[in-house]
Design a protein around this nucleic acid. Structure first.
Lengths: 181, 181
DNA sequence: TCAGGTGCTGACCGATCGGTCAGGCATGCT
DNA sequence: AGCATGCCTGACCGATCGGTCAGCACCTGA
């Protein structure tokens, strides 16, 4: 197989992201990614140690931002935590629409990987913050609906600009979340 | 491989549902399903023509209810459509938590199958109804957040009773959806 | 007693998966 | 010229996928 231009690291990364968002992580083969950039499967594995490593590198910026949000949440309570969590997560979801979208559905499975082990705990803390740290079922249900809804929705609006998506998501989050007592 | 009791059709169906919700459709092999009920992979394919056929039969009741909701929506507009859509979809999501949950993430891919071709159109009409048939981006964003959020949330609350989950979801839906103008 | 159907099985199939490996082919330094 | 290095490749590997098939054990009605 002939290559016109050298397949760069980043070129493969964005191609993989594109495929993952369409057919999911498990549903995308290294062959698919290679075909997208016009190189061989072996080339993909030359640039990345494994398929998992590719995913990790793809998710790294989003995960870093998630960890930063988690740190910012520490110590906050009630309405304050709720507001910071909502704004932070909307920013994250809007900024990393593709990355968030590709995790949907495969979340529970991918979280088994040691590289993503702590994400589960972070997202649980995030849900708790969305609920204003209330343990009432209704508050927790509302929190999860908003969190999951935002994550899912971002992937569907890949075409509209950030400055339009962001306030729309924030508005629905503020309406939907239960006011803290 | 020895079997104590005969593997019934339904036993396989529920086992498959359980696995699908944990590891997804693509992520679950016929071997996994067979292991869960303690029979051979060939037995699974004796009861079901194919893996796809198994999925179709699993989803049939939920799809029937979705089609019924779609029919009930015909002709309705504005707040009326919004209310009927919300109540109908919450009922559907609560009643078929597992089935809804297993479709998440693999939705775009599974919809390619001819058996599910019309589901895409139905869900688009459902989103439109949630938005009160407004074409304002904010209304459509809110609609999708609520729809996707409810679908995703149900799969996470498999343990709490219907009569507790239902009003909680309806409440957050009513708060979150934009009032029709 | 025996023929026929039902439920189920292990063995097997081709395809595809993620991953390995030796080597080809440029390019640039010595 | 000779050599090393970086990028890339086809061929190949074992594992696993969904699916097929001949045949076994069992039950039942004739």
């Amino acid at each position: 197989m002939a290559r016109a231009t050298p397949a760069t690291h980043d070129e493969l990364l964005t191609a993989a992201a594109r495929r993952f968002t369409v057919t999911g992580y498990k549903g995308t083969s290294l062959q698919d990614i290679a075909r997208e950039v016009g190189c061989s499967k072996a080339t993909v594995l030359y640039h990345f140690a494994s398929k998992d490593a590719l995913l990790c590198e793809l998710m790294a910026p989003a995960i870093a931002m998630l960890e930063e949000l988690d740190a910012r949440l520490a110590g906050r309570t009630g309405a304050d935590a709720q507001r910071v969590a909502a704004e932070g997560f909307v920013d994250l979801a809007v900024g990393f629409r593709r990355e968030i979208a590709l995790l949907r559905g495969e979340f529970p499975d991918l979280l088994q990987q040691p590289a993503f082990a702590h994400i589960q705990q972070i997202s649980e803390r995030l849900v708790a913050a969305f609920a204003g740290f209330s343990d009432r079922p209704a508050a927790r249900v509302a929190a999860l609906v908003v969190l999951a809804g935002i994550a899912e929705t971002c992937g569907e609006f890949l075409d509209i600009p950030d400055e339009e998506l962001r306030p729309a998501l924030l508005a629905v989050a503020h309406r939907a979340l239960e006011p803290t007592t």
